[in-house]
Amino acid sequence: MQDAHEPAISVSNLVKRFGDFEAVKGVSFEVGAAEVFGFLGPNGAGKSTTINMLCTLLKPSSGQATVAGHDVVLERDDVRRNIGLVFQDPTLDGYLTAAQNLKLHAELYGVPNNLVAPRMEQVLRMVGLWDRKDGQVMMFSGGMRRRLEIARGLMHSPRVLFLDEPTIGLDPQTRRSIWTYIRELQEREEITIFMTTHYMDEAEWCDRIAIMDKGEIVALDSPQKLKAGVGADRVSIQTDDDEAAIEALRERFGIEARISEGAVTFGVEGGEQFVPRLFAEFDPSRNPGSPAIRGVSVSRPTLDDVFMSFTGSTIRDAEEDPAKHRNRVMMQMMGGGARR
């Protein structure tokens, strides 16, 4: 048994290769007991591969990891008894009722008989499904199923709960309510929660986040500190000639801008004060041939900007198919040309 100060998860130099492709390139980190820890990154960054190694579903190519004090390779069973899993894809039996699904889980995990019923009541109440316990899962909505999966993952009182994209495909309201359950759960059960997401706004709910890109952890800290680290405000402008605007920004202000989500985007100190200077410089009467600005927005740094500052693109850009991206740029160029 471990004491409270020992980390719930400890990973060093974990590597996973699939043939020639290195999906996870030697990551190291620790997650403290009763912490909510988020893994953030675009699809294909290696989040799921890492989580699968920690859950003993995949064997690491090299490196070491312990979960709840047990080695994920050498003490697979001990790890499994101490973790709860909620997968990205549903794994409920739709033909069974909610209670039958939980009962099945309890039996598979060897929950003592006298505790099955009270524990079931607790976890079902916790996710607000107690009154639906005898409903067939087939009839449940997506959000209800996800909540039931979370409840099931908790049936055997795991020390660490792994959630792989727990809110994917759910509407914003349901996503928020799931997060409320997760936070409450963490307080009541003193459980460590390790989760992956690619929704930036959700990462704000975590105590600490690790940003993963192309198989590596590029940043790891609390969301507040990460945002503070970016410092500058984020300005994005819509112009009728993005390339010329980027060129002009570089020449006149020494600012490196890039196109992100269809707008020319850059970071600058004191964003609001910068806007009048920008318009002055881009005024066609002063600087003929300047690209016309059609819109400006200034925002405080968000996790999107943190992500961008570490990886050079926003998470949505990183997820886009390169071909699609190319098409969009082409269309913008053509559209811009026609308007002029």
Binding site: N82, P118, G128, S157, R176
Partner: peptide, 17 residues
Amino acid sequence: TVAQKPAEPYEVVRVQV
């Protein structure tokens, strides 16, 4: 929000596997 149900009262039952 509307979708958020107030947490129902429950007792924490701990299980040792």
